[in-house]
Structure formats: C-alpha cells, structure tokens
Design a protein around this nucleic acid. Structure first.
Lengths: 237, 237
DNA sequence: CGATTAAATCGTACACCGTACGAGTCGTTC
DNA sequence: GAACGACTCGTACGGTGTACGATTTAATCG
C-alpha cells in the first residue's frame, strides 16, 4: 500500500511489496472513521464525503472501511452521533433552577449542531441514536422533577424538541445558502407588493437568531411551567 | 438556460406528423416535470428520483430535461414548491378568529408535507420558495392584524415556523423508518435503566402525533396571544 | 418556394459514485 | 508446519449527474 502522501493523484502509481511504511497510520477503528468523517463533512460538506475520499484521508483502501462499517449510511450515523454527544451539563446541582438547566441543554444542542451545519441536514433521516436518547432522557427527567405532570410530559418534551429542531434546521439552511438567501431577499424586495408584511417587519433580514431562539424558547417554557395547573383549553373547537 | 415562461402560453393545438411514437406525450414543460417528479418521489422515495427515470416517465430523452431545468436540484425545488402550494384558506372572512386561521394554515402545512414525506427531508436544504414566502406572509399578516406588536412579530413568526417545521420533520422521520423506530424502542426497553423517564412516559410509543402537535401549538399560541401586553421577562438573566 | 434561425430534443461520453466479490496479508493458536 | 479468524484492499460492475454537440422541429423572412 502506498504511503498516504497528501497528493491529489489517484492513479496507479503505488508500489506494492513494501512491508514497512514510512508513515503508517494507526489501524482503522470506528472512532478514527467517525472523527475523520466529521472533519471531511466540516470541510467539504455533505456531498463531499465519499467513501474513497474518507479512505484516502485515513490512509487506507476504500474497501477496508467496509470491514468496520456496513454502509455509507453507517458513516453518517457515526458522524452525527459524534456531534451530538453531550458532555455533562455544568449542573451545579442547583436543581432548583430547572429552567436554567433546560435552556442550557437546549442551547448547547443548538450551538453544537450549528457548528456542523451538515448535521441539521442529516438529522431528519437518521433514527434516534444513543446520544439523542440521552438528551431526551435528561430533558425528560428535568421536566418531571420540576413538577410537570406525567400526563403533560410527552407534549412538553415533543414541543421543546420540535421547536429546537426546527430552529436548528432553519438556521442551518440559512448558513448553507447565503447566496440563495440574498437572492430570496432581492426577489422579496422586488416583490414587496406580494409580501408587504414580511417586507415591513424585515423578517428575513433580522440577524438576531440567537435572541429570537431564546425568546421563543422562553415563550414555550412559560407555557410549560408547571405552576399553571394544566393546559388552558383552546377557546373554540 | 431554461426557457422563461410565464405560465399560460399560446395553446397551439396543431399536432401533425406525430404518431411516430406509440403514445405521443405532450411537450415538456416545467409543470409536467414538477408533477411527474412528485409522482416519482411519492412512489420511489428520495433516492428513487433520477434524471433518467424522470425522463423515461415523461417519455423524453434524459438530456431534454436540461433545457427546462438547470440542475437536479432545480427539480427538487420544483417538486417541493408544488407540494407547498396553499390553496386559499377557507377564510370565511371571520377574521375575528385569527387563532383558528393560524391553526388551520399550520395544520394544512403539516398534513400537506406529511402526505409527501420526502418533502421534509428536502426542506432543510432548499431555499425559500415562493409558496413558502406566501405562507409566511399570510401568517405574518394574520398575526399582525390580530394585534401582535411589530416588535414581537418576528419572534412570533419564527417560533411558530420552528415549531411546525420541527414537528413535521420529526414526524416524517418516524414515518420513514418504522423499522428503525421499532429497533430503537427495543433497544430502549433493553436499556430501560439508562432511560427510565422516557421508558416510563412511553415517549416513543405514544402515537397521538396529531394531538400532541395541536397541544403544543396551543401552548405556543397562548404565549403569543396579544392580550398579554408583552412577553413576560424570563425569571433570571 | 428555399434559406435562416431559434427552440427544443436527445445520443454519446465521461468522471465519479457505492459496494459485491474474492484474493491477499497478518498474528495467533495448535 | 497447518489452520484460522481478523483485517486490508484491488478490481469490477452497474448506477449516477451532466457537458457537449448533433439533430430535429417550428417559425420567420426573402
């Protein structure tokens, strides 16, 4: 096997029969694959991850990957799960502040994924990995301990989850397509007669994503706060 | 470049010298491409849409598509936009019921996209199409007329948008991967020690998606309701 | 009428993709 | 030795999106 040689050539210029390599990589492993996949996704984007490229980066043959991994989808799962790890919250044990804990965890979730925008594209099609379940469990426990009734717990969790996921995906799509966004904005100003309210409120120009995220989250948490005995019934139905 | 066409073109019903084909298709058009793409996506899934297959279905050569369309991405845009069309709300003019109008529009949005689960996968990576902007404008207008202050409008819109998008994507991912879901649930019950709260609340088994969606939406709308003068400030900050 | 031109169609070719398959290399054990 | 499991990887195949240019068709003009 040829030495890795960061070169771009990929033809057959490799010498065989060399047992000891100058730059031998450590052996393949799931972790090395995952880490390198994340690197590649960060630098080359979602379409930039190919099995060949990944193997090149790892200094191995393409098909060697398939010993450790079933699919390319497997690689995606690995990468996503790596990104979603939640290093223990700075709990500070002040369990009194359940709301602060929830906000911290959800904001960490968001910033973590926005650091790797491809993760937002990946999430809708992957199943629940263990790190996601960890976060859901933590959220669940916090809310339950805060006094949210069991009957309302699932609605509360899914509401928060939905909100956070939607926010992440929306924000990430703007990150990915700045050009498109500019084009949309331009089209929008041209068609300001069609979209007067959007135009007036400068919806698409407001750049305070973090603030808006936090405010909406507060809104939702206000509704979820357990001091109200239960959900107010919707006026008409 | 693609032919720019503003909808209705002169209908020349002169078809001569045809009948060479067994079944002569009407000429290619953006609309025919979009409709067929949606059909294909519905039946074969996201990966099932290939340019060759699409052309086959349209009875044309593969490369003929590229006269009307720039990319395969363009095709995705077309299909997504077609699905997101909002046929006029049954306004009933009862503008009094702003809340009902909002709920109707958002639920229509959701059911519409869930009818075509691939649309949820597509959405995060596509820019804002005109139909999305239409819906945002409508939402915007409704909330504004309902009395939401301009300063709060953007937060309100994005909160609703985030919630709805997150709900759709989450739900769609469960539709797509029933097997994975079963597997996750099984893994979960095996590891019920790791996720006791989730296990207890049967978070992943609760099948009342529609009800949960509606309840969470009500929660959010309660917070957005303009009778409160402004957003209550978050306890600590 | 034929000549010109624009609109639209489409066959071929190419680079790249995921991965099935099987042959090759190791380090351990008898 | 031999046998075996863990692991690596070259080759090949069927598929993809699409660049390019030739070709057909419809409309226009002299």
């Amino acid at each position: 096997m040829a030495a890795k040689r960061s070169g771009a050539q990929s033809k057959r210029s490799q010498q065989k029969s060399v047992a000891l390599q100058s730059a031998q990589e450590p052996p393949l492993s799931l972790e090395r694959i995952a880490v390198t996949a994340v690197e590649l996704l960060d630098t080359k984007g979602l379409d930039g991850l190919t099995m060949r490229r990944l193997a090149d980066r790892l200094g191995s043959g393409t098909m060697s990957l398939y010993w450790h991994v079933k699919n390319k989808e497997d690689v995606f799962d690995l990468a996503l799960d790596l990104v979603l790890e939640y290093r223990g919250a700075p709990q500070i044990v002040g369990s009194q502040d359940w709301r602060g804990n929830v906000v911290h965890m959800l904001e960490d979730w968001r910033t973590n994924m926005l650091r790797h925008p491809w993760s937002a594209l990946l999430l809708p099609r992957r199943a629940l990995g263990s790190n996601i379940l960890n976060r859901l469990e933590l959220l669940s426990k916090t809310l339950s301990e805060a006094g949210v009734a069991d009957a309302d717990l699932n609605v509360a969790i899914w509401s928060l989850w939905n909100y956070v996921m939607g926010a992440i995906i929306t924000r990430a799509s703007f990150v990915l397509s700045d050009d498109d966004r500019a084009a949309a904005q331009q089209r929008l100003t041209r068609l300001s007669e069609l979209y007067p309210t959007i135009e007036r409120s400068r919806l698409l120009l407001d750049n305070d994503w973090d603030g808006a995220f936090r405010k909406g989250l507060d809104l939702l948490l206000d509704g979820l706060a357990p001091r109200q005995r239960t959900f107010p019934r919707p006026g008409s139905d």
